[in-house]
């Protein structure tokens, strides 16, 4: 069935992205260092934003209220990104930019790649809302869930480990 074909294909892409992130995680783990640069409450808010958005995007799929829930998801996603951009900017201004050490390079690469994926997802949602075509929604939902799952490992191994 054509729908199964596209969903499997997209799922395979997601699986390949898992290995992509695994390589970034491996690099982060190997080049680890430590800097006291993270704020627990800040990351907590980011995590909540993404987790709740993972819930709302699922609702966009199972209910028929795509517009409502997609707009909610998009706002939460943009909020997450805003916080991340703020964090990155401050780190760079305070001398903790990616060119300062291997540890920071790995941090920016791993968290930045995740952020770029979130941005792509936001763009996707925006296009869906503007064109009002939702036939790709199931794949977007898969993508968004996957990004939240990656974030679980980022907040654990990058932020929580970095704060302990």
């Amino acid at each position: 069935m054509p729908t199964d074909k596209t969903t499997l294909g997209f799922w395979l892409y997601i699986m390949s992205d898992c290995v992509l992130f695994a390589s970034l995680f491996a690099t982060f783990a190997v080049l680890r260092g430590s800097e006291d640069i993270f704020s627990l409450p800040f990351v907590f808010v980011q995590t909540l934003a993404l987790l709740i958005s993972s819930f709302t995007v699922g609702l966009a799929f199972v209910t028929k209220k795509q517009n409502t829930f997609l707009i909610l998801t998009l706002l939460l996603g943009l909020g997450f990104l805003g916080l991340e951009v703020y964090e990155f900017k401050n780190l760079m201004l305070e001398g903790f930019g990616p060119s300062h050490s291997a540890y920071l390079s790995s941090f920016f690469a791993l968290v930045g790649t995740h952020g770029l994926h979130v941005a792509a997802g936001c763009l996707w949602m925006l296009v869906m809302l503007v064109t009002q075509r939702f036939y790709q929604l199931q794949r977007l939902v898969l993508f968004w869930h996957f990004l939240d799952i990656i974030w679980i490992f980022i907040f654990t191994f990058v932020y929580l480990f970095g704060i302990i």
Binding site: V43, T47, F155, L160
Partner: peptide
Amino acid sequence: TLLSFGLV
């Protein structure tokens, strides 16, 4: 999530 953040 709360457990993890709470512990830390």
